[in-house]
Amino acid sequence: MNYPGRLIKMGETDAATVKAIKIRLNEALATENDPKLRLDPTDPNFGPKMKQAVKLFQSRNVDSNGNPLNSDGKIGSITWAVLFGAAAVPVSEAPASGLLAELLKIAAAEEAKQVREVPKDSNRGPEVDQYLLRAGVTPGLSWCCAFVYWCFDEAANVLGQDNPMVKTAGCLDHWRRAPAKGAKQILKQLAIDNPGLVKPGMVFIMDHGGGLGHTGLVEKVTGGMLTTIEGNTDASRTREGGGVYRLTRKIGEINKGFIDYSGVV
């Protein structure tokens, strides 16, 4: 059964969905010899007993990267993929436009070059300086958003068209100004509930408070998991790393949302 594009939790009204989940939970938890745990698939209600079964399932399983599931008794896309298989959740690998495809090609080439700060932890380096200068700011500043802008600008130059992205090195400034450029915003909860809304070539925005943020490009979507290409980070997935990296993140980590330029280009 395919993920229905919304968080499934207590009070769910779709009887067919509840029935399918109960059947799979009974199988996964081997409840045939435990009447106290066994769920009744003919009962269309998602009640407290079903929530406890979901939590038990989550506590016993891990996601596709080997990380523990969040034991909250709610079924999002990541838990759904473990219950019903990876093929039951949305997978997006194809960008929506030629510009976004070129954008990801350019970003992937920078990752393949293993761009790093020189010297370490300086927010400087031959490539890093160029990212910042292209975004209109002085070398030495945080550069994750400048990297995204540079990739957009390079892609636009290759295709001989205007760069649709806001010219900025500020993650939250980008979030605020993107709608005026015609870009669409996808808020975090919509993306968590329905990962099918998130597509390759979108820009993710994280808000760390105090005006600080982090950003990067979505390269692939597999249910509730993202493959990203980011600047000014590293394997720790922090906002002040030392290079361009390809990372895997849960959609739930993106606490601000996503910017979609596909309608502009």
Rank of each mutant, 00 (worst) to 15 (best):
A30N: 14
E32M: 13
N33M: 05
D34L: 08
D34H: 10
P35F: 02
P35M: 06
K36A: 14
K36W: 11
L37N: 06
L39N: 03
D40A: 05
D40C: 02
D40T: 03
P41C: 03
P41E: 04
T42E: 12
D43N: 13
P44E: 08
P44W: 09
N45Y: 08
F46H: 00
G47E: 12
G47T: 02
P48T: 12
P48S: 15
P48R: 14
M50E: 12
M50V: 14
Q52Y: 02
Q52S: 08
A53G: 01
K55F: 08
K55L: 09
L56G: 02
L56D: 07
Q58D: 07
S59Q: 01
S59P: 03
S59F: 00
R60A: 13
R60I: 06
V62F: 02
V62A: 09
V62K: 09
D63A: 08
D63S: 05
D63K: 01
D63L: 05
S64L: 15
S64H: 11
N65Y: 15
G66V: 03
N67W: 07
N67Y: 13
N67F: 07
P68A: 00
P68N: 00
L69I: 05
N70K: 13
N70S: 11
N70M: 12
S71N: 10
S71A: 13
S71M: 10
D72N: 13
D72C: 11
K74C: 14
I75G: 11
G76A: 08
G76M: 10
S77L: 08
S77W: 12
S77V: 10
I78D: 05
A81S: 15
A81F: 10
A81Y: 11
L83D: 03
F84I: 08
A86K: 15
A86G: 11
A86M: 11
A87P: 00
A87F: 04
A88K: 10
A88W: 03
A88S: 15
V91H: 14
V91W: 11
S92I: 09
E93P: 09
E93F: 06
A94H: 07
A94M: 14
A96L: 06
A96N: 04
S97F: 03
S97L: 06
S97M: 07
G98V: 12
L99N: 08
L99S: 09
L99D: 07
L99T: 10
L100N: 00
A101Q: 13
A101F: 09
E102N: 05
L103T: 00
L103H: 00
L104F: 01
L104E: 00
K105T: 15
I106T: 11
A107M: 00
A108V: 04
A108M: 12
A109N: 06
A109Q: 07
E110G: 09
E110I: 12
E110Q: 15
A112P: 00
A112W: 02
K113H: 08
K113W: 06
Q114D: 13
V115G: 04
V115W: 05
V115Q: 08
R116N: 04
E117R: 06
E117V: 00
E117W: 04
V118D: 09
V118L: 15
